[in-house]
C-alpha cells in the first residue's frame, strides 16, 4: 500500500492511476462492444448472453455476483479516474493562472485537447446509458430481461440513436488519445515501439466506435427489428 500511496502523491503517479484505471475501462468498453455485436446473431443469442453475465461463476458464485463484482471494479475505476483527472486538472489550472492573449497549438490533436470535456460527456452518457438500458428509467418501452427488445425499440427513437452516435464519437476520441497516453504514462513508448502502440490506440478507438455505432445504425436502417 505504501508504494501506491507514494505514487499517488506525485503528478506522475496520479497519471499512472489514470492509466491503470483507464486500462480496466478500455478492457470493459472493448468487451462490452464485442457483447453488443451479439445483437446481429439474433435476439435469443443476445438475451442468453445477458443471462450468462448474471450466472457466470455459478455455482461457486451466487446469481448476479460476478456482474456486481465487475460493476464495483468499474465503479471504483471510474471514481479513481475522475478524481485523479480532477486533481490534475486543478494542478494544471494553478500552473498557468494567467493565460496567453494569443496561443497557437502545433502538435496537439483535437482528441488530446478534448480529453477533459470529452470525459465529462462520456460520464453523462454513461449515466444516461444506465438509466436507459440497465434500469429502464429513461426508456419508453422497457421490458425487464428482454435485452434485444430494449435495444431495438430504444434505437428506433431517432434522437436516442443520435445521442448514442455522438457519445461514441466522443468515446472514440477519448480512446484515441487515452490509449496512446496510457502507454506513454506507463513508460512503454520508445522509438522502436511508438508506431505499434499508436496503431493499437487507433485500432482500439476505431473498433469501439464502429462496433458500437453499428447497432443504432442497423436499427434505424431497419436491419434489426
Amino acid at each position: 500500500m505504501a508504494p501506491a500511496l507514494a505514487l499517488y502523491r506525485t503528478s506522475v503517479g496520479k497519471k499512472v492511476v489514470m492509466a491503470l484505471t483507464g486500462l480496466i475501462l478500455v478492457g470493459f468498453v472493448v468487451a462490452h462492444m464485442l457483447g453488443n455485436l451479439k445483437v446481429f446473431t439474433g435476439g435469443e443469442h443476445l438475451n442468453e448472453y445477458a443471462e450468462f453475465l448474471r450466472t457466470v461463476g455459478a455455482p461457486a458464485l451466487p446469481y448476479g455476483m460476478a456482474l456486481w463484482i465487475a460493476r464495483i471494479v468499474l465503479l471504483v475505476s471510474v471514481v479513481l479516474h475522475i478524481v485523479a483527472a480532477t486533481q490534475l486538472t486543478l494542478q494544471d489550472r494553478a500552473g498557468r493562472p494567467q493565460r496567453y492573449a494569443y496561443h497557437k497549438k502545433q502538435a496537439a490533436t483535437y482528441a488530446s485537447l478534448t480529453m477533459r470535456w470529452g470525459g465529462v460527456i462520456i460520464l453523462l452518457f454513461v449515466i444516461y446509458h444506465i438509466l436507459h438500458f440497465t434500469t429502464g428509467t429513461a426508456h419508453q418501452n422497457y421490458i425487464h430481461g428482454d435485452v434485444y427488445h430494449n435495444v431495438v425499440s430504444g434505437f428506433q427513437v431517432w434522437y436516442v440513436s443520435v445521442i448514442y452516435i455522438i457519445a461514441m464519437v466522443a468515446l472514440g476520441a477519448h480512446l484515441y488519445h487515452g490509449v496512446w497516453s496510457m502507454f506513454q504514462t506507463l513508460g512503454l513508448n520508445n522509438q522502436t515501439w511508438n508506431g505499434v502502440l499508436r496503431g493499437i490506440a487507433v485500432l482500439t478507438a476505431l473498433a469501439v466506435v464502429i462496433g458500437n455505432i453499428a447497432l443504432p445504425v442497423a436499427v434505424l436502417a431497419g436491419f434489426l427489428t
Partner: peptide, 10 residues
C-alpha cells in the same frame, strides 16, 4: 507548481 503531463506533445 508546474502542471502535469497530458502527453499532448506541444
Amino acid at each position: 507548481g508546474f502542471g502535469h503531463c497530458t502527453n499532448i506533445g506541444e
